[in-house]
């Protein structure tokens, strides 16, 4: 049984390495991000299969943490746009109203 799990994990590792072609080719950053998302899911699955092969139930916790934080990179990728100007100088001190108006522009 554990040979089967290991073979399945190896197969999934192969799909990750194949999927890297999409990261290398792009063309857009959206494509690259999607590929990374797929790798995250595949990595979770590999971890679950390895936890069966190696009989190490702590690996389920590792998979849980991966699943929990899989979305962070994608959220960073999408929400990073529209950072404000450098706030270091007094003229650029932040004030809430201008932030609001700028953001409504962004989201159009």
């Amino acid at each position: 049984m554990s040979v089967f799990y290991l073979a399945a994990a190896l197969f999934l590792l192969g799909t990750i390495l194949l999927g890297l072609i999409r990261v290398l080719r792009g063309p857009g950053s959206g494509d690259r991000m999607l590929a990374a998302q797929l790798f995250g899911t595949t990595g979770v699955t590999i971890l679950l299969l390895l936890s069966m092969t190696l009989e190490e139930s702590a690996l389920i916790d590792v998979a849980l943490v991966f699943a929990l934080l899989a979305v962070v990179a994608a959220v960073a990728f999408v929400r990073q746009h529209g950072l404000p100007e450098p706030p270091d100088t007094p003229t650029h001190r932040r004030n809430p109203e201008s932030t609001e108006s700028r953001e409504s522009n962004d989201d159009r």
Binding site: M33, Q37, G40, A74, V75, F77
Partner: peptide, 11 residues
């Protein structure tokens, strides 16, 4: 499921 849905939607 939640992560995949959110990421796909936002991308």
């Amino acid at each position: 499921l939640a992560a995949g849905t959110t990421a796909a939607h936002m991308v």
